[in-house]
Design a protein around this nucleic acid. Sequence first.
DNA 1: CCATATTTGTACCGATCGGTATGAATTATG
DNA 2: CATAATTCATACCGATCGGTACAAATATGG
Lengths: 203, 203
Amino acid sequence: MKMGRPREFCVDKALDAALEVFWRKGFEAASLTDLTDAMGINRPSLYGAFGNKEELFRKALDRYVSEKVKYLSEALAAPDAYGFAERMLMGAAAMMTDPSHPVGCLAIKGMATCSDHTGVVREELDKVKTNYEAAMLGRLTALRDAGEFPADTDLQGLMRYLTTVVQGMAIQASNGASCADLRQVGQTALKAWPAKKGVPASA
Amino acid sequence: MKMGRPREFCVDKALDAALEVFWRKGFEAASLTDLTDAMGINRPSLYGAFGNKEELFRKALDRYVSEKVKYLSEALAAPDAYGFAERMLMGAAAMMTDPSHPVGCLAIKGMATCSDHTGVVREELDKVKTNYEAAMLGRLTALRDAGEFPADTDLQGLMRYLTTVVQGMAIQASNGASCADLRQVGQTALKAWPAKKGVPASA
DNA sequence: CCATATTTGTACCGATCGGTATGAATTATG
DNA sequence: CATAATTCATACCGATCGGTACAAATATGG
């Protein structure tokens, strides 16, 4: 057993509370007072358990990625290219308007917030973005090799289109768009996606 | 002639400099020191000429809307619905990556930044957004009445799709996407748009 | 019981935030 | 020249920022 006075709060619960604050207010706008109030602890406890504000954000972002952005891995697991795009867009619409947590996307909001801000936060967000893009591009490549796309298809362009729509959805969500609104945007966006295999292209 | 010591700086030039700072860093991240340094004036001069930080932002936003978002009015002037969407998307791609000013969009960045922030800034951004949406919807309605769309077309949905892509473009631009990247996104997005009048729908 | 290790609460640190008081400098008016 | 009006430059205000020093409190290991 560990020596010393035992911790009086649950680290996971506190991290969830911090994530909620970062998600709602953004990294810079979330003050330590906001965070400690929501987490139900005081500053030295936060510092002792999580390091500093940037480290706390990093851990909250890790949690966000693994707990809240599941729709991306579900999309990657889709058997065909159309299903991939469909799960991506519909999953984003559902997640970004889920009333059980703040609206929009922590990572996208973060990227929009600190574009001119160097530091751990920016690096971490870039890392998340790079990982996601690599995963999506890898999946699209595999699907092309499986015959889902013509060999000369610009997969990077398709990926960028998809991420652009998802990023726009995050703005829409933070502006009050409903899940139905975003799903409709996704449905429209899907019309630009290569048609299902074997199905003739048409509106 | 006005009495007193004459102003030693050009208000318009100073406002342009302030706009550049707000555009690059966002409202809250732009400090008065950042602003006065870029504007080449000191704090009391800024206060005397523009009121306060919020008022300065409001004036910079006005300038931004009238000087930098011309592509929207150009899109509204397009003779047909496809041209409207095309000018919208291509105009946004060009403006958001124009090297003569910061990348992305001041208004979209602002909305992403202060979603949980009440105040003059948020109200002003909402006003801009509302005006733009009303103008777009009005134009789409006129185009539908002119026979460009079936009578039961969901114009609101089309408008939301378009704005979502443009908003996503702003994030892409602030993340380093090139004009060509964004134009390609726009071209892909256009595939989901109702085809040109008289042209059969197809990819 | 004593020493050690860890957490907690308070109270504080220097830095920076937006905003301003004050007086010198510069102009038009009389 | 004298006065009023306006701007400019310095230096400062209280508030808040992220972060921490310090000591009381609470646990384990001896």
